[in-house]
């Protein structure tokens, strides 16, 4: 029974993974194996967000939880004894506890004045000044900033310090990506369609990206100290899940507005709501 349960759990996990992969392929079907940073709309749809931020241990726990719940359901179909019902109750309670642990996080709305809409604000958590430095697991796959239709996609990308970002060229014309920012100066040179170049962003800060061939192109990588970040949708909504409880410095960044920061305490259970207002 246990083996059947685990197998079902693994199958569900695989299905979830395949769904995420398919949505990424829709964005860049020609770039197999690369991790596409979700757009604001994707995030609003709930695609790829929580999976992206989950550590390997979280994934294993989730697989086990799914397996246990699935097993409990199978058992329930055939159970008549009190002992089995008790077991089922324990399993459900364990699942609920695990689920409530995952829901610890921040959500809210950022209102921007003087700009087109409330999108492309990066909301992220930095280590509070009195908190020790922690090491976080890096994404196992490259994060992607594509060059498509003479624009960088996405326009802003939050990334954990140490993340490797891939810069493919999906246009018919050549591009030349470089950054003049002190946080991470680099120049990838001019390269044609089909070429993919990589940069590791190893210092926290804001990195502006430009193309030396097309002066109007620009993008930003916001390199963070923690994996707790989100980019707002047009309504300004954001949600950062799976945050380890504790004190943090909440920051908000927009390319045309002065940055914001404030101390926040992330509770053990549930989401803390923090609304922000950014203006000139």
């Amino acid at each position: 029974m246990a083996i059947v349960s685990i197998l079902i759990g693994v199958m569900i996990e695989a299905a979830v993974f395949y769904r995420g992969l398919r949505s990424q392929r829709k964005k860049a079907h020609h770039l197999e194996g690369l991790h596409v940073a979700p757009s604001a709309r994707d995030r609003a749809d709930g695609l790829g967000r929580r999976d992206d931020r989950m550590t390997p241990m979280s994934r294993i726990l989730r697989t086990l939880l799914v397996a246990m719940l699935t097993g409990a359901c199978v058992v329930a179909r055939t159970a008549h004894s009190k002992g089995i019902l008790r077991t089922l109750l324990v399993v459900v309670l364990m699942g609920a506890a695990a689920a409530s642990g995952e829901a610890s996080g921040l959500r809210g709305k950022v209102t921007c004045s003087g700009v087109k809409d409330n999108s492309d604000v990066v909301v992220y958590l930095d280590r509070a000044p009195d908190q020790p430095v922690k090491d976080y697991s890096l994404p196992t796959k490259d994060t992607l900033i594509d060059q498509l239709n003479l624009t960088f996609v996405p326009h802003v990308l939050p990334a954990l310090k140490g993340t490797r970002v891939a810069f493919p060229n999906s246009d018919e014309v050549r591009h030349s990506v470089f950054s003049p920012s002190k946080t991470k100066r680099f120049n990838l040179g001019t390269y044609p369609k089909g070429t993919i170049k990589h940069v590791v962003f190893d210092q926290p800060g804001v990195v502006a990206l430009l193309c030396n061939v097309h002066a109007e192109m620009s993008a930003y990588v916001i390199v963070t100290e923690t994996p707790y970040f989100a980019t707002t949708d047009k309504q300004g909504r954001y949600e950062i899940g799976n945050i380890s409880p504790g004190q943090y410095l909440l920051r908000a960044w927009h390319e045309k507005l002065p940055p914001l920061s404030r101390k926040v305490v992330v509770e053990k259970d549930g989401f803390t709501v923090v609304d922000l207002e950014m203006k000139r």
Partner: peptide, 19 residues
Amino acid sequence: GGEDKFVKVPPVSLGAPAW
């Protein structure tokens, strides 16, 4: 209060602000 929200005919860029 800021141009971006109200401009219906976007300007032609002669270089992104990051330049």
